[in-house]
Design a protein around this nucleic acid. Structure first.
Lengths: 348, 348
DNA sequence: ATTGCAATCGTTACCGGTAACGATTGCAAT
DNA sequence: ATTGCAATCGTTACCGGTAACGATTGCAAT
């Protein structure tokens, strides 16, 4: 049973004693063919379960109908939700996706981007890694004629369509919510300072503090990477200082988990001792202990939009010079982790 | 800058006034070539950043070096963790993966499987949908010479390599843990009765009850699908009966979330009113409210093994007749959701 | 009878690789 | 001088499609 070969035009042509081009015409619904011949071809194609070889088409048309997606980690709620949106729209448009991971490493991102390019993808959707500061590997792709669309962690150095959220406002609102609950000593645990999202979220955070006449303490702004142990140590140090924060705004979900872990270890209660608020898109956030106040992003829609923009770039005949950056809105879901207990509120 | 074409052997050949085959030889490290010529070719290839067109190779070799992966949902912890394992090993072996989703629908699974096949994937890794009872679409692939490896939700109807866990023992142990805590009225909320994992987990569950001389109540065995509303109603009905269970074993993580939701709505406390134990691979399980007792699977290793077996099938010269089913172990992580409070234990 | 054209089909080239085969050259062995 | 062979390179065919172009046939229009 094994090693059956896939049916080709040639097989059909030979059986019907026709040329491959006639068979091709019949299958493509050309009018340049006898109706009877066409019917025979279609019937046999159906019977043999013929399906055209996309490899042959790709070679000829120099289009693979494959889109590359580069994210930090598939097993990450945010990423997999965006990918779900990408798949949804890409599929409708007849594109398939190949997903690649950077694992938050610059070197891996560069290598895997080149690997995708060597696969002759028609375009790339990317959210850069925490380490990435140089984006030449992306410019390389664009120079080769492979369009790139960025989302989430975008870069100013690349001129292309981008899909982001209003990180500034997301952080601002979350910080204000903490302040309104009476928290005045708020720390910010975030990722690489070189990422735009980090900078925007940080500005949102500090602006919220300043708006409420609260001081900004630089030692309470932690830039972490994805080395869990190092991050745990940093956070532990933060909470073991003589004066410790009574609230934290976290920039990404993974950090909030690490933070929760450390707080448990230190036997600090959330939100009694420390309140938490985090950028997060985990559907389980409301079921956490305590339920985690979350700045949510329209992940699925972001994915859909990113592919839509990418396909626009891929299929447009003329060279596009005008690139747009679409900024979507975040939603603050307030839960227990950033809410003063009723008693405490009463005392205020 | 746009529409730069990719460098081909022809480009290099023309610049060096050589034939493409000589260039090809040089790049492939053939000895059948002058050392000096070879050096020139390699230097120019480097300079022009030549990378071979995998499409052309695929067409010639009838191998795409692409593996299809069909799962129910990417945005699902279990799936994305297995996929991470698949990617890890596939990448090392020079394969790329295309991920496709069934969204728990039989029709979608069949369609997308055919789509993958039409893409000429070298092999497929699949966990079938909750609706799937007929697996002809997989046999079709195998008959075409495209090997298939199944994991998690496997089928007896297909003869091939399979990677599963000991579902029976996983369910048995989890149920015993509940019984040992003094819970005697245990329900089982699970998925389609046609899936082997469902049958094995159910057997583990009922055998544990019988071992402890507890009755098996058929009305307390709920088979759900992924229609959240219908499932919520079923669960609500279960807990609103005159005699309600005091513990539940859940077959998949998603159901445990739905169950948690309903219990909150009904203001039933976990584990005071109802204890919960669930098959789950969410890293957040220990941080849930209450921390969820989980039957965990070695997801990453399962993914790795599944590709390893698949690549073995793809690359083996002779036809393989002996298929193996690798059964891995589950681990029970006991947390608050299935632990009697100290007081209650004292009363026992 | 010739011409033109529509209808219908086949031939050929091409996409970018590789492998089989062939061709050329020069030198050593006879 | 002839033969054989190694070294080195080019030609060709093929993978499976499609499009451009060409060929044939028969009939209507002149």
């Amino acid at each position: 049973m094994n090693n059956q070969h896939q049916i080709t035009l040639k097989d059909i042509a030979q059986q019907l004693k026709l040329s491959v081009s006639t068979v091709s015409r019949a299958l493509k619904g050309s009018t340049d063919i006898n109706a009877e011949t066409s019917k025979q071809v279609l019937a046999l194609a159906e019977e043999l379960k013929y399906s055209p070889n996309p490899i042959a088409l790709s070679l000829k048309d120099k289009k693979t109908k494959v889109i590359g997606v580069m994210v930090q980690e598939i097993a990450n709620n945010y990423c997999s939700a965006v990918i779900a949106g990408i798949e949804n729209f890409a599929c409708k448009m007849g594109y398939q996706t190949i997903i690649s991971q950077s694992h938050e490493k610059y070197e891996t991102e560069v290598q895997n981007t080149r690997l995708l390019a060597s696969r002759r993808i028609d375009g790339l959707i990317i959210s850069i890694s925490n380490e990435t500061r140089n984006t030449d590997h992306l410019q390389e792709l664009i120079d080769k004629g492979i369009p790139v669309v960025m989302f989430d962690r975008v870069s100013n150095a690349i001129a292309t369509h981008k899909v982001i959220v209003d990180d500034y406002r997301g952080a601002f609102e979350a910080t204000c919510q903490l302040i309104e609950q009476g928290y005045e000593n708020i720390a910010h645990i975030t990722i690489s300072k070189h990422l735009l999202i980090t900078q925007n979220r940080l500005r949102g955070f500090t602006d919220a503090l300043r708006t409420h006449q609260l001081p900004v303490r630089s030692e309470w702004i932690l830039h972490c990477d994805f080395n869990t142990e190092a991050t745990e140590n940093k956070i532990r140090h933060l909470f073991c200082s003589t004066k410790r924060p009574d609230a934290v705004l976290l920039s990404v979900e993974r950090l909030s988990i690490t933070c929760l872990k450390v707080l448990r270890e230190l036997e600090l209660q959330v939100p009694d001792d420390v309140a938490l608020s985090s950028f997060s898109d985990n559907p389980l956030s409301p079921f956490l202990n305590p339920a985690l106040t979350s700045v949510c992003q329209p992940t699925f829609a972001m994915g859909q939009l990113a592919v839509e923009l990418l396909i626009e770039l891929i299929e447009s005949k003329q060279i596009i010079k005008e690139y747009k950056t679409v900024q979507m809105k975040t939603t603050l879901h307030v839960h227990e982790s950033s809410l003063r207990k009723a008693v405490a509120v009463g005392e205020k």
